[in-house]
Design a protein around this nucleic acid. Sequence first.
DNA 1: ACCTGAACACCGTTCAAGT
DNA 2: ACCTGAACACCGTTCAAGT
Lengths: 232, 232
Amino acid sequence: MSREERHLRADAERNRKRLLEAADALFRERGLDVGVAEIADRAGVGRGTLFRNFASKEDLIAAIVVERMREASDRGHGLLDAPDAGEALFDFVGGIVCGHQSDRALFDAVGDTFLSNAEIRDAYSELVETLGALLRRAQEAGVVRRDIGPVDLLMMIKGVCVAAMAFQEADGDITLRALDLVRGALSTAASAQPLRGRTLTVEDLDRALPARDHAVPADSGTSSEPRAVNTG
Amino acid sequence: MSREERHLRADAERNRKRLLEAADALFRERGLDVGVAEIADRAGVGRGTLFRNFASKEDLIAAIVVERMREASDRGHGLLDAPDAGEALFDFVGGIVCGHQSDRALFDAVGDTFLSNAEIRDAYSELVETLGALLRRAQEAGVVRRDIGPVDLLMMIKGVCVAAMAFQEADGDITLRALDLVRGALSTAASAQPLRGRTLTVEDLDRALPARDHAVPADSGTSSEPRAVNTG
DNA sequence: ACCTGAACACCGTTCAAGT
DNA sequence: ACCTGAACACCGTTCAAGT
């Protein structure tokens, strides 16, 4: 029952991969409102196959978003031994923001609703930890104020992504400017006045957003087989 | 032809008002995905009447968003003669953020797509001007860094709204904390390093987001009467 | 064990008929 | 001049039939 190693038939495996590629390409080009019919067509499979692999269109989107988050975490790990702790942190942050700008799927999906998906939450937790490690290094190097945590920073990053997306047509440099504002907000110089509230932990988020996974209806055991296995 | 004083029949006027009220209430309670059928039912009119007053569901949402923006501008004007320029500015900003949190319609609508609506853009321009006046006062009082403009600030506010909406369930104080971070970012102390790029003006935004109003199809002149007049 | 496409449900929008 | 609700179009999802 390990959720990683359930092996599919060869053609099924290939169909799943094709669906992800097709959806990824179409979402990037035209946003999240491309129809499932077109995605299935581009993948060369029937509509039903899409829903056999992903319980809903939302789950398909989630699978792609999880992939992006994992990639971001990996990049973050690679920056942990960079010589300049401050630059490493802001390189990482800049990369996340740029990724959102070129990928509407990732951008559109980062809303409240999607955090209820269990896999996204796992990937998000991982991202918070990675960012926390980079942040701590920058704080120990004395370039970032010490009274903030990774969730505070993600909060501001998310804001920058939204703003940059809205205004990037008006001025391509707007993202750099927004990042500079964040950088200023994080600087030790800005910490003259203390912040209200406290920094949130991953556990806080888990507690606030109860997983809806175990809430399966009682009759679901009667079906011979689960439909959307969501491996990988 | 003045777009304000086209007078409707008494029952039509009343229906329009009822539709706005019904939509407003339902959007607040359950978000923007409530159906038009339910809105029309609650307003006590047929579905067709909704589309006679508003060309599309999106236009109905836009009408409500415009109302909110106008209200915010009015509040801002009222703060222009407050004794403490810094407090006035941050009161105003805090009010905008809180409004977004209690009104999902307003929140959800503040995306790139909606700025293409002509009325929303007018209201937005007005908001930028009001915020600019409050900002200038705070800058002259020496409490806010001088190298930013109202669009920069709106950019950060929008970010705070998104973040606050996402995390408010985890911690009710998160909004206060986010506002403190913005306050820190705007402080003269944070301006040690200069910002890249330049501050955007309303004209920049207008240029970047071409209005789609005059792009009516050629055959639209044949209809005896425009359908959605969108007065008010 | 998996694939397929016709059929279903849902929702925004239109329009012929009514007053 | 405006209202109405049946009808249409579109899209996510399901399922009986196929291999």
